[in-house]
Amino acid sequence: MADTKPQEPMTEEEVLEETNRDELRPSDEPPASAVTEEGDEGEEDALGAWVRNKKIVSLWSINQNRNSWVGVGGVGWRKLDNSTDSGVTALTILGANARQTKGSVNYNETKKKINMMYVW
């Protein structure tokens, strides 16, 4: 059974190819020194596209395994990468933090699925 989606669903995209991303580490500096232009949405390439300076305005989950979404202000719903249990849960914690604090978010997405996220 396909995963259920939140309202106003996006088209379900094929799952990202499994890559070893455990070694990925953050490189951004805090917003005061980072380039975070409003609504900056980069071109997507093989490594995905960075979308910067957004707000998380809603959260969604359902009693299905690894199915967690965030609503991005001005963008819409985005699914959190569900390649691993710990990955999707960590991204969910960050999404919740951003929602709670109204913090600024930079994220990387591939095929409308968020695979990396900064919360400031």
């Binding site: 990202l16 070893n20 991303r21 455990d22 070694e23 990925l24 580490r25 953050p26 951004d28 805090p30 959190l80 990468d81 569900n82 390649s83 691993t84 710990s86 990955g87 999707v88 960590a90 991204l91 914690i93 960050l94 933090n97 968020i114 695979n115 990396m116 996220m117 900064y118 919360v119 400031w120």
Partner: peptide, 21 residues
């Protein structure tokens, strides 16, 4: 002051004020 995570296995980072990631 910042958090970072990826979809990979147990990969999350915290930005500590005056220290870094």
């Amino acid at each position: 002051i910042g958090l970072f995570a990826t979809g990979g296995t147990r990969n999350a980072w915290a930005y500590i004020q005056g220290v870094g990631w």
